[in-house]
Every structure is written in C-alpha cells, then in structure tokens.
Amino acid sequence: MIGTMTREVEQAFKAAIPIFIGYVPAAVAFGILSKGCGITLLQCFLFSAVVFAGASQFIALNLLMTGMGGGGVILTTLLVNFRHFLMSASLSTRVSRMSRKAHVLMAFGVTDEVFSVLSFRKGTLTKRFVFLLELSAYSAWVSGTVAGYILGGFLPDILTKSMGVALYALLLAILVPELRNSIKAVVLAVASGLLNSFLIKLNILPDGWTIIVCILVVALAGTFFMVDDDVREEVYG
C-alpha cells in the first residue's frame, strides 16, 4: 500500500514538472502586466488565486484597460473558459469513486494542461494524484504571478520567450503515445488543429469558441468512426 502511495506521489510530481516550467513564465508575465495596468498586488494575487485560468486573465486585463465594464469582462471570461465544461465532462467519467466534496474541490483545478495530463494517465484517476497535480500547477501559477508583480522581469527575456514553448511541448508529448497507438487519434487531432486554424482565420467566433466548436465537431465525428472498433472489441473481447 505504501509502495503504491509513494509511487503515485512521485508520478504526480513528475507530471507536474512540465506544467511548472510552462506556468511560471506565463504567470510572471501576468504579474508584470497587471502592475503596468495599475492593479494592486492584492487584486493581482486574487486574479490568479481565484480565477486560475491563464488566457482569460490576460484578456480581462486588456479589456479593463480599454475601459470595458465589469459585465462585459465577466461575460467574455465565461465564453473564453467555457471549454473547461467539456473537459470536466470528459474527466468526470474517469475519476474514482470519491466524496462530492472532493469533486467540488477538484473541479476548481481543471485547466487545459491539468486536463491534458489527467486525460492520458492510464487507469482510474485517484484523489491523491489529481490533487497533487492540481496543487502543483496552482502553486506555480499563483507564486509566479506574485513574483512577477513584485520582482518584475527577473527572468532573462530570452529564457521567458523560450519557456513559452513548454506548454505546447507538454501537450504534444502527452499526445504522441496516443498517436503511435491509433491512426484514428492522429486523424482526430490533425482534423481538430486544421479546423481550429480555419475558424481562427474566419474570425467570426469569440475568443475561446473556436476550440469549443473543434471539440464538439471532432469528438462527435469521432463517435461515428470509433464505434466500429468498440463493437469489435466487445465481440472479440
């Protein structure tokens, strides 16, 4: 029992390292930017501590600067972050049996990167693994934000820029084993990327909604051509 426990703790921290590398420079940038916008340290901290959703926080700062009112900022945030609804839906079927309280806490930490790591972890997701991963991601985000606000650009510019690829590299590294195993996964992932590029070019959907449309369309398409295999699995065991 103790063996499984320490292994899980180790795996959670290992899984958190790439998220940490990706979140810190982004969070520092957010801290610096909010200071430049005339936000107080407390407000800046609260942004990261209670919203905990990267892209939407940057967008909110920009909108506040243009003088948009609270209602507009909150509505935009809802639209930008609504993709997490689909991500939570996908995760919720995979978590082990646990108390409602645990679900209520766990839901707070569903970011793009946490979701991606959890999605491709084999087996049922245990409370310990999920919470350790979320807590690591959360500490990176909140502490990076505060450090950025107080210390300013303490990371060399070129390093910050290079660390910007970390989150993409993380998502790709998570996806690769899946791509090796299944040609369908390749087709779905590539289709989703192409569709997203196309929708962004079209420029008719609000921020965040191109991804939602991609998830809905591609996952729905997936249900049609995944079905054959599943049936076969059932027939042949």
Binding site: R83, L86, M87, A89, S90, T93, D112, F115, S116, S119, F120, V165, Y168, L171, L172, I174, L175, E178, A185, L188, A189, V190, A191, S192, G193, L194, L195, N196, S197, I200, T210, I211, C214, I215, V218, A219, L220, G222, T223, M226, V227, D230
Partner: peptide, 20 residues
Amino acid sequence: DIFLKCIPVAAIGALIVPGV
C-alpha cells in the same frame, strides 16, 4: 461515453494548432 473519450484528442489538437 465514446464522445467524452474523444474529447481529449480533439481538445489537444486545437490547443496546439495553430498556436504553436
């Protein structure tokens, strides 16, 4: 259930491209 299981691959594809 199959739909929900397809979400991760679809989401990650769109999160990577074209941002990357």
